[in-house]
Design a protein around this nucleic acid. Sequence first.
DNA 1: CTCATTTGCGCAATCGATATTGCAGGTGAA
DNA 2: TTCACCTGCAATATCGATTGCGCAAATGAG
Lengths: 344, 344
Amino acid sequence: MVADEGEEISKRPTIYDIAVLAGTSPSAVSSVLNGTWKKRRISVKLAERVSRVAEEQGYTTNIQASVLRRARSKIIGMIIPKYDNRYFGAIAEHFEARARDQGLFPVVTCTQRDPALEVEAAKELISYQVETLIATGATDPERITQICQAARVRSINLDLPGSGAPSVISDNYTGAMDLTDVLLDRCKEDLGWQGPLTFVGGRLSDHNTAERLRGFLDAQKRRGIDPQQAKVLALGYSADNSENALMSCETTGPTGLFINSTISLEGAMRWYRKQSAKQSNMIRFGCFDWDPFGEFLPGNVGMVQQDVETMLDRTFELIGSDAKPDNPVLVPCIFRPVRTEKRG
Amino acid sequence: MVADEGEEISKRPTIYDIAVLAGTSPSAVSSVLNGTWKKRRISVKLAERVSRVAEEQGYTTNIQASVLRRARSKIIGMIIPKYDNRYFGAIAEHFEARARDQGLFPVVTCTQRDPALEVEAAKELISYQVETLIATGATDPERITQICQAARVRSINLDLPGSGAPSVISDNYTGAMDLTDVLLDRCKEDLGWQGPLTFVGGRLSDHNTAERLRGFLDAQKRRGIDPQQAKVLALGYSADNSENALMSCETTGPTGLFINSTISLEGAMRWYRKQSAKQSNMIRFGCFDWDPFGEFLPGNVGMVQQDVETMLDRTFELIGSDAKPDNPVLVPCIFRPVRTEKRG
DNA sequence: CTCATTTGCGCAATCGATATTGCAGGTGAA
DNA sequence: TTCACCTGCAATATCGATTGCGCAAATGAG
């Protein structure tokens, strides 16, 4: 007998299935399950019956159908380069939490710092009908903005600014100045040495690196220190680059390093470990980025932690008040001093 | 004049808009834009015209509508507790990459180790019509499995096993044995001391912790060492818990710590730093988890890195071959020895 | 008992894309 | 010239949920 019993190959139940089982209409089921039933004057009795049947059948709304019909999707997207450091990890986590708080559905996707993937992911999110797209640390924010504009989707830049859309970024300049000041103080205090310091990691074409370098230079100039061009080792973000740059750089005697990110810090630590005991005692560094293990690393005088929560507060404020692309919103950083215990 | 010019308030163009502009039908536009046009015998000329118009108008397909109509959604979901450590970060990143390789659309969401959020997120992903849901490190895998089954969605457990769905996990027992062996070797070699070791972090009700503890105990027993009950400090995963547990534990003289995760390692390091120089020189530890900064921490003899790539290979194999809930697939871990340089 | 409201709910159109079917017009063989 | 067949495209039903509209029954006022 060829299955003719009207017996479906068990699929997901829809409002039509529930309607039949509850002896009512699909529209009643819909309004009960999406909470608009009071407005539609459905009786409590029917509402309860429908809810019970839906529960029994393991009903879940088909968001695709729902979003297709509704005016708003309530979906908010984010592209982010990586999940592999505390900064981006925290951004993704807080973004999701914040979005849920606002009754929005977050969708995050990471793009591996790959410009092509960035574009692909942005288009994908737009296909999902996101109402807003947050472009975090995009390699090419303008391109993302352009894609969003073509699709009439609001976009916001986070971490790296762009001119086409509102941006929220850290106050890199001030943070870098603070870090440089502490580093200089500690070099003087611990080593009796006054600079100039060495800048390690990042890319000068990158807005954040440029601003941090500016703060780094200004803080030294303000003290009458002449920062040397050769001491700026911004050859990229990878650990290897930083390690190699330091290796090929003459550093004997007291040394102070301004490390541009935790990834650069890995390279710096590899280099550090190769120094003689005597030399490594004469090294101090600060890092413009935070990692929980940073405070256990020898020579660390402090870390600049970007204030992710506030950055996301500002970002969601922008979403609420459709702002125009303006000057980037600058969020102050949090300085985390490190006082390494004196060791025997 | 009340806008009567048929002039829409600029919205996203649909295939209907493109069809009008290209002087053809919506169905032709659809097939051109989704690549089935050759099969549908659309002429190259028309295909090119449609593509050009679509490009000009910044058209992107509405996935909601597309998925609604199609048989398969090609969406694959993952829930994951956190993004804030290398392990979960790597899982999320590789999952996304793998999914894209297979032509699937990944959607990842983090659940903050909150059972309620876990359930909510799972239901949300099911609403998105995911074809498969990967539950990573779920606090209650069985509950997730149950929800997925009710919705006729395939599910797979990753990192922590469950009985209702296929599971892929690390070979915690063997990894723990290896780590314990190395730790014992190094304690003997460096300190002339033979244990017993201390186990720090995790929860005994947690499958992974239980397995690691078993390996930890067996490795010691095999050497004729009697592991003491009081040396098992598995009071939770937080850094504070581990720090406090160690503080309240009498540890003077040679000490060997088996640290159950990087989060516990943070606590252990805070404790470590409070020890006298003399005492801290008599501490060795190994960590069942990997972090790039681990190798720079004093006393570290090695880290067990879970083989995320292979775990995801196995996971996607399971997706391909709709396997039954069986014994968990065990993936061997990678041992990363640490040779700290002798310091002055 | 009549008429106006209110209550409770169903009908049917709709969102945008897909896939089956159908239907002209053209081509080639007999 | 006739007819089978192919080419190129359009019409149309459909996926599941939402929502404006309308209508019958219940209720209340007079």
